[in-house]
Write a protein that binds this DNA or RNA. Structure first.
Lengths: 215, 215
DNA sequence: CCACTTATCGGTCGACTGTACGATTAATGA
DNA sequence: TCATTAATCGTACAGTCGACCGATAAGTGG
């Protein structure tokens, strides 16, 4: 029993490699694995066993780091907003002009890579979750309020620096976000009617025509 | 055992009232009950037992008229499109002008009553279903193609009768539907940012400004 | 080298789920 | 009136889910 090798008994059932991680690291690894599973099978079709398999850990490890499946899903959504959306809106607010900021938002959120598709399919699942759950609904509502505020701020800046013409920033922001959401549905769902490239072109065309630059 | 009354034994466990229905009627009753359940709890949280309870029939009755839960859900979605959407688009095509037809679509699809909210929450669940299921995805894609065609037809009529000004009907139709979908998300989800009344006003304002009447 | 902490494992349990099926009995027509 | 059909019922079964928990062992400080 004191042999140096880790595998000595031929009948041993393939000892799994177990490298321990501090909780905050393992939580992050499981969360990332869960995000992949959700993007593939959908939020409601994701089980703890799926997540555990994708993270290459035992079932018990997931329930050790999380109180339950709900906490895993909530963590995925929270980290997704932090990793994907936040950098884009932050970059937009650091753009030179209001119009340049809108460009950053459009190009960032309506990107053509597969990662954007995963993000929006995750966000779509979040919609249905919020449609029937008060807690998620309140959170989603706050996210939209923040997004509206960011866009309205960009429109005000654009009107001030002459890159845009905006009479009612709040109203125009809601309209812009609505158009964004609608184009997302047409772009990223399977068998989509338009490509993300076309969606970006349409949203930019819409923005520049309804809010043209000063002179 | 041959008594005339139907209820004689005091210990009899509350004989349920059983009035038989021909299959096409019972299917319709079960479908309507299922629609209510789905609107409340969501598509993926709806079980056969929930549907049976809502329809006030036994579990076996549901499995007698339907091959399984999938067929029930599919029937609900199919009938919802036929009952809710089809009459609106039909009425729109019978309107006097293209612009009047758009009014019918806007007022019909963005109605303020609770039934509209149920419709869109059901449609939202359908989105997530289509996002991960090829069969539903194909069907949903066809529904959007039809809607785009209907709107594009209204725009062409409006341009012809002078009630609208449209240069690219197909492109404008996609944009219009995108704005419609986006406003739906902001209007009918819980803790919504805007009311359906505001959504109708915004969509009409958008349509009349981007496609003004001829002179 | 050795206790001690704790991350990890994997089996187990109760609570559901969808589906199948035999027993009832309302409805129909001869 | 009575035999036949078939709509309805309720139970049973196999499967999967989330959650729980004792056993194991990797890592750490002394």
């Amino acid at each position: 029993m004191q042999e140096t090798g880790t595998q000595e008994t031929g009948k041993a059932p393939a000892r799994p490699p177990r490298t321990r991680q501090p909780p905050h690291i393992r939580r992050q690894m499981i969360t990332e694995a869960a995000r992949t599973v959700i993007a593939g099978h959908g939020l409601h079709a994701t089980t703890l066993r799926d997540v555990a398999a994708a993270a290459d850990v035992a079932l018990g490890t997931v329930t050790y780091h999380f109180t339950g499946i709900d906490e895993v899903l909530a963590e995925v959504l929270k980290s997704e907003m932090l990793i994907y959306s936040a950098p884009i809106t932050d970059a937009a607010q650091e753009a030179a002009t209001g119009r340049a900021g809108l460009d950053v938002v459009i190009d960032g959120l309506l990107a053509s890579d597969e990662r954007a598709g995963e993000h929006w399919r995750l966000w779509l699942d979040f919609w249905t979750l919020a449609a029937h759950n008060a807690e998620y609904s309140a959170w989603q509502s706050q996210i939209y309020r923040d997004l509206h505020a960011v866009v309205a701020g960009l429109l005000r800046r654009g009107h001030a620096d002459g890159s845009l013409t905006v009479t009612d920033p709040v109203r125009e922001a809601v309209e812009f976000v609505a158009m964004l959401d609608g184009l997302v549905v047409q772009s990223y769902l399977r068998q989509s009617q338009i490509t993300p490239d076309q969606a970006r072109a349409m949203l930019k065309s819409y923005a520049w025509q309804t809010m043209p630059a000063r002179d």
